[in-house]
Design a binder for these strands. Structure first.
Lengths: 273, 273
DNA sequence: CGCCTCATTGACTAATCTCAAATGGAGTGG
DNA sequence: CCACTCCATTTGAGATTAGTCAATGAGGCG
């Protein structure tokens, strides 16, 4: 691909200059490959690296003392992995690849270089972290308030939306390396129940999850069923410099604000951290 | 109280100089009172303030289209409310007081002043945000993987631990304005079921939740039952300046690292963001 | 072929929810 | 002080959802 998923994603929100594109290219010189099942980040790594996925899928999860695991998030091409754990010693999550992965390893030093030299990318990083948080909250809401079938539908609609952003979702679905066991660990259900629920959704003519592929048979119906509101994936930008001094010295920002964002402004979605 | 809960909490992690204490005092000049049920942050507030609670409890929650709500977090004296929503336009959560509350309103301008003038406090803010994230992840894990009784026990143990940090938990329990409906909304259960579970826990001789008071009848037993590991509440500090240049120009940091933190280092808790 | 892992299904059990009603304290107006 | 209301709590009975245990099938791979 001539343009990386990362640049693709950032471009969708911000206007990139040659400076930024150059910085991105530099980063991509250090791209490496990881086999399926590799741990990008693991418990106890204190000075580990962060990663920007170029291709492939990964999961971020937490293991419980009793051996159960909760998948906190799925990571797709263009996503950051382990950034917050780089900035702080506090995170306590692992990241593991679900497919072969190409990723750019970002050392802590580099991250700070990017922060100081390319404020726009720093902003992109902050934006990504915040988006992560919004997804985790949405995940919590789903696990807490939605039925099993709605959770499954909601998760797959979210993944579709995110894949669409990096050009990896087709017109009616997407290729999906996630197993039913993964869905179970992400949604707090058993694999057996996931299987039954998937069948119900399929028989209802809404969606098919089979042979590593998700197909939306009735997209509108599924969105309605799952109560899916993509707003949380597509939130506003961090405060930009023309409004006030940005927290990370991110000056000279030129942020783009697509029209479709505005329809989520001032709507019925409360705010806080 | 001669020392504010906020200063108290920050002091437990960092050595404060006169400079920082002065800044804290300045902040507290703008302290205000809010009645029970006030909304500190509400949907659609785009340029709203943040708050530092001085006394009282609040909840941070998200409302679903169907009227259900998921309580994402409880806020106690010394906690920040709505900080991330100040920095970004992205958050979509409300915050409401559960008791009469005294809080310091922090305008966006002030926040940036603090960031540039008092790096140590900026670090404290970042630390608080990260701690929030860790709590939300833990919350997600709980709702996804724990039984109803374990969730209840875990939540109340967490609150006890956090209250202890600001000197508001007694030897065997704490005063708690949270209703069974709140527990239900936080834990993804029905109030009816919460009630039954509380009875079971009480009859098991572990804990009593009655008349606005939580009493631990068998603390060790409860910790064991809930699989409670306080580590996530007490994580490391953000990277400090003597190790590398801090992300928010937070130089000249003097961070304290209590011994009890170290026992959580390099242990079996995976890391990522 | 033999051995994986993942998907699928059935029969049964356990957890949680729904609906409904009773209790009890705190405040309010008479 | 009493009657009344409001709200949180408590309990019961039955329905629903999800989990457990167990077995089978299907595909990939050495």
């Amino acid at each position: 691909m001539s343009i990386s998923p990362f640049a693709h994603k950032v471009s969708s929100r911000m206007r990139l200059g040659g400076h930024e594109l150059g910085a991105i290219s530099d980063l991509h010189l250090r791209r490496r490959k990881y086999a399926t099942g590799s741990h990008l980040v693991l418990q106890g790594d204190h000075d580990h690296s962060g990663f920007v996925l170029a291709s492939g899928w990964a999961i971020v999860y937490k293991t419980l003392p009793d051996g159960e695991r909760q998948i906190v998030n799925f990571k797709l091409p263009g996503d950051f992995v382990g950034v917050r754990a780089m900035l702080f010693r506090s995170a306590d999550l692992s990241a593991e690849t679900l497919t072969p992965v190409e990723a750019t390893e970002v050392k802590t030093d580099q991250l700070f270089n990017v922060f100081t030299q390319t404020p726009l990318l720093a902003t992109a990083v902050l934006w990504a972290i915040t988006r992560d948080d919004a997804m985790i909250v949405e995940h919590l809401v789903g696990v807490g308030q939605r039925s099993a079938a709605q959770r499954v539908a909601h998760l797959l609609l979210e993944l579709d939306e995110r894949l669409r952003l990096v050009g990896m979702a087709g017109k009616s679905g997407f290729s999906c390396p996630v197993t039913q066991y993964h869905l179970a660990d992400a949604l707090g259900l058993t694999p057996v129940h996931i299987n039954r629920v998937l069948r119900e959704i399929r028989l209802a003519g809404l969606m098919t999850f089979q042979q590593g592929r998700v197909t939306f048979d009735d997209y509108a119906g599924l969105v309605d069923f799952a109560n899916f509101d993509r707003g949380y994936l597509d939130h506003g930008d961090p405060l930009s410099a023309d409004e006030r001094q940005a927290p990370l010295a991110a000056d000279r920002l030129q942020t783009t604000r697509p029209d479709h964002v505005d329809k989520f402004r001032g709507q019925s979605r409360p705010q806080a951290d």
